[in-house]
Write a protein that binds this DNA or RNA. Structure first.
Length: 408
DNA sequence: AGCACA
C-alpha cells in the first residue's frame, strides 16, 4: 500500500507521456526507438538498453496525447510494434519523465567501453580486439581490464561510450597497447604470468604457438645477458628481439623469431637445458602471448636486432647508458675469437659490444650432459665448442642488427 | 515479456 496504488494491468495503467518498451533486441539503438515512435509525436528523450537483459527502453513524448496515440494504436493493431523483427510490447511507464537519460555510456565520445561476455579472461587477445575494431578506423590505444562477470553465454560484445577522452597507456603489454607510440616500453610486470599458471592442472589449456618465446631462467648462478641469449637462440634462426625482465624474483626473457616454425624448433631444443654447465641457468620455455615485442632497441635488458644498421652505428658513436660497460677490460679482442674463453673472467664482465669485428666470433658455451649443446638439435653445434667450465659466453655471435646471423 | 540511476 505504500506504492502508488496504480493497477498493475496494462490496460488500466495511468497514461504517461513516457512509454515503457520491452522485448526489444538487446542491440537496439536509439535511432530504432525513434523510428518506431516518431509517427505518433515528437520525442524529447529516450533511454535504451535498460534492464539486466538490456532489452527494455523508455521513450518520452512531448505531451501525453502522443503517448496515448501510440499505445492505443498498437493495442488495436493487427501488426505489432517491431524492432528488428521482434515484437515490442508497449505500455505506459509508471514514471512521468525520463530522468538522467544520458549516462556515461550514452554520451558519444572517441573512446569506447567494450565488454566481452561469455569468455574466459584472456581468451580474446588484445590483438583480436585490435583487429576487429581496426575495421572501422585507426585504433589509437587499447587498455583492457577484468571485471567480475555476471553473464554467461557466447562471446558477445557490449559497447558503450567511455567517459574517457584519452587513454593513458604507460606500457605495452598483453593488456594494453598504444598504436600511436611504437617506442612505448614493455611493462616488465605485466608481460607474462610466471611459470605458465595459464596451464591448468588438467593440462588441457594449451598455449597457442607464437613467434615469441618466454624463457624462465632457473638457477641463474651467472648473469644472463641479452648477448648470451642472442647467441643461444640464434642457433635456430634469426633472433629479432629480446627482452629480459624480473618476475616474481626470477628472471625471464622474451625472444622473438620471425616465424613460429623457428620458435618451435628452438623451444623444443632448448627446453629444460642449461646455458652453463653444472645445471646453471636452466631454461624453461613456453610460447608467449606476444606476437611482436616492443622493446628498447639498445638497453642492457633488451635489444631489437631488426633496426637498421645505420641507426646502430649512430648509437655506437654516441655511447649512452644502455651500453653500461663496466670498467673491466678483457673483452677487447681475444675473447671474441673462436678460442676466446677467458678463464676466470666474471660473467658480469662479458659485455656486449657492437664492434663489427666481432662478427667472426663464436661463443664458447660449456656443454653439460643433457644441455642444449648436444648434437641432436643444434644445426650449428660447432659453434659451441666445449672449452671451459667457466661460463665464458662472450658477446660473439652478435652481429650488427640488421644482419643477424643465419645458422641454417 | 513487466519499469531505468549508480
Amino acid at each position: 500500500m505504500s506504492t502508488s496504488g496504480q493497477p498493475q494491468f496494462r490496460y488500466t495503467q495511468t497514461p504517461s507521456k513516457v512509454l515503457h518498451l520491452r522485448n526489444l533486441p538487446w542491440e537496439c539503438i536509439e535511432e530504432e526507438l525513434i523510428e518506431l515512435c516518431k509517427p505518433f509525436g515528437k520525442i524529447v528523450n529516450t533511454k535504451c538498453n535498460v534492464g539486466a537483459n538490456r532489452n527494455q527502453a523508455f521513450v518520452e513524448f512531448t505531451d501525453l496525447n502522443q503517448a496515448i496515440n501510440m499505445v492505443t494504436y498498437y493495442a488495436s493493431s493487427s501488426e505489432p510494434a517491431q524492432v528488428r523483427g521482434k515484437t515490442v510490447y508497449i505500455q505506459y511507464s509508471n514514471r512521468h519523465e525520463i530522468v538522467n537519460n544520458k549516462g556515461p555510456g550514452d554520451v558519444p565520445g572517441n573512446v569506447l567501453l567494450v565488454t566481452i561476455e561469455g569468455v574466459e579472461a584472456g581468451d580474446v587477445s588484445i590483438d583480436v580486439i585490435h583487429l576487429v575494431f581496426s575495421a572501422f578506423g585507426f585504433v589509437h590505444k587499447i587498455a583492457t581490464f577484468e571485471k567480475a562477470a555476471d553473464h554467461v553465454g557466447s562471446c558477445h560484445l557490449r559497447i558503450s561510450y567511455s567517459a574517457h577522452t584519452d587513454l593513458n597507456i604507460k606500457f605495452q603489454s598483453h593488456r594494453s597497447r598504444d598504436y600511436t607510440n611504437p617506442y612505448l616500453p614493455v611493462n616488465p610486470t605485466a608481460i607474462e604470468g610466471f611459470a605458465q599458471p595459464a596451464v591448468g592442472p588438467d593440462g588441457k589449456k594449451k598455449e597457442p604457438e607464437s613467434t615469441v618465446l618466454l624463457a624462465s631462467i632457473e638457477n641463474m648462478q651467472y648473469a644472463v645477458t641479452v648477448d648470451v641469449l642472442h647467441t643461444v637462440f640464434s642457433a635456430f634462426g634469426t633472433v629479432q628481439k629480446i627482452a629480459i625482465f624480473e618476475k616474481n624474483g626470477g628472471t625471464q626473457a622474451l625472444i622473438q623469431y620471425p616465424d613460429v616454425t623457428t620458435a618451435a624448433v628452438a623451444k623444443d631444443a632448448l627446453e629444460g637445458h642449461c646455458i652453463y654447465d653444472g645445471g646453471y641457468c636452466k631454461l624453461h620455455l613456453s610460447y608467449s602471448r606476444h606476437t611482436d615485442l616492443n622493446v628498447k632497441a639498445f638497453s642492457d635488458k633488451s635489444r631489437d636486432y631488426t633496426i637498421p644498421e645505420s641507426s646502430l652505428l649512430a648509437m655506437q658513436q654516441a655511447p649512452t647508458a644502455w651500453e653500461n660497460r663496466p670498467p673491466a677490460p678483457m673483452y677487447q679482442g681475444s675473447e671474441f675469437g673462436a678460442g676466446g674463453a677467458v678463464p676466470g673472467q666474471a660473467p658480469g664482465g662479458q659485455v656486449p659490444s657492437w664492434d663489427p669485428n666481432m662478427q667472426a666470433g663464436r661463443p664458447n658455451f660449456v656443454s653439460a650432459p643433457g644441455t642444449f649443446c648436444s648434437q641432436t638439435y643444434a644445426p650449428s653445434a660447432s659453434a659451441y665448442a666445449v672449452a671451459s667450465h667457466q661460463p665464458n659466453v662472450g658477446p660473439g655471435g652478435a652481429s650488427p642488427p640488421g644482419q643477424p646471423p643465419y645458422y641454417r
